[in-house]
Amino acid sequence: MHFEGSHVLAMQREELWEILMDPDILARVTPGIKRLELIDGTRYQAVSEIKMGPVNGAFKGNLEILDQNQPESFSLKIKMNSRIGNVSALGHINLKALNPHGTEISFAGDAKLSGTLARTGQRVLTGVANSMTKQFFKALEKEIAGPGEERKKGLFSRFRKKDKGEPDGS
């Protein structure tokens, strides 16, 4: 499945880059993510729970950031396994500075599903992906609008307060 889209955020490009590279924030804003841990410089281990049409499951796997070209672009390689099937995806993310306070983030990539997930979820996949993207940007916007100070605090103090998919303040 091919996915692509774009969104404009009221934030400076460099700042947005930092947010996107922060696993803790990402874990908060990405729908379905339960846990995201940095393994080394560019690789993360992730646990997520996703409902796709009639099936849902807990996924475990890796996220890897490739081709980092700070602050312009990077690629994201995802491989997640679950008892209902596996997901592998490769996406390219571009950040374009529109003005000092606005950045357009665009993404494009392909995802592959297997197993029960593919058999039962394919039909609703695009819909699920679209709604998850919307949730992601909405949460990101909230994150940006939220208290900047807290965002800058250390990792530990910001340890997941709320349930995943519903970042703080909701």
């Binding site: 009639p54 592959k112 599903l113 297997s114 593919a118 058999r119 039962t120 394919q122 039909r123």
Partner: peptide, 14 residues
Amino acid sequence: YDEDGQLVNGTYMD
């Protein structure tokens, strides 16, 4: 089947 060889309508919902 999709291009990866997944049977995408293997249920009575599909």
